[in-house]
């Protein structure tokens, strides 16, 4: 298997990583960079647990090859809190108790953050559209929906979280 030296900015820091051609972004994050917050739920792009930002867009990192990320900017769940302060969407998920086992949570947070970044005032239908690819087997979704609605309602600009 051919290996490639890539340079990728992950959560703000530039990383030089040696990756085999067939390694996914997900595996690179978890195994090469030790960022285990991003979870592997299905390796098939179905569940959304591995969602991360790639150049500002939410992607299933199990469907992206690491070599495709040469020169790219990646952000994971570990980057949502700034200086220890939770992002408003993280705080809202806690406020609404929208977590049970926690395995889907990182992906849900990234998809929700991505939605609020491009549409700070989404309708319920828009929230459902944006998060339909993030499955959750525990909660039954109602609290996830409420958490995203509420984060939008309080004006969820990143970096203002943790105050409520």
């Amino acid at each position: 298997m051919a290996h490639h030296k890539i340079s990728v900015t992950v959560n703000g820091s530039v990383e030089s990583v040696d990756v085999p051609s067939n390694m996914t972004l997900l595996t690179m994050l978890r195994e090469k960079l030790g960022l285990t917050g991003t979870k592997n739920g299905c390796t098939a792009g179905e569940c959304g647990a591995c969602t991360v930002f790639l150049n500002g867009e939410p992607v299933n990192s199990c469907l992206v090859l690491a070599v495709e990320c040469d020169g790219a900017e990646v952000r994971t769940v570990e980057s949502l809190a700034r200086n220890g302060q939770l992002d408003p969407i993280q705080q809202s998920v806690i406020d609404h108790n929208a977590v049970q086992c926690g395995f889907c949570t990182p992906g849900v947070l990234i998809s929700a953050r991505a939605l609020l970044d491009r549409n700070p005032d989404p309708t319920e239908e828009e929230i459902r559209d944006a998060l339909v690819g993030n499955l959750c087997r525990c909660t039954g979704y109602i609290r996830i929906l409420d958490a995203v609605k509420d984060a939008a309602r309080v004006g969820a600009a990143p970096g203002t979280g943790g105050s409520r």
Binding site: G102, T105, L109
Partner: peptide
């Protein structure tokens, strides 16, 4: 009272078996 693990879950720092340092 809230689930005690929630803070870690939203930060991505809670550890499942495959998250333990090998």
């Amino acid at each position: 009272m809230k689930n005690v693990d929630m803070q870690m879950h939203v930060r991505g720092t809670s550890q499942f078996v495959d998250d333990l340092a090998a």
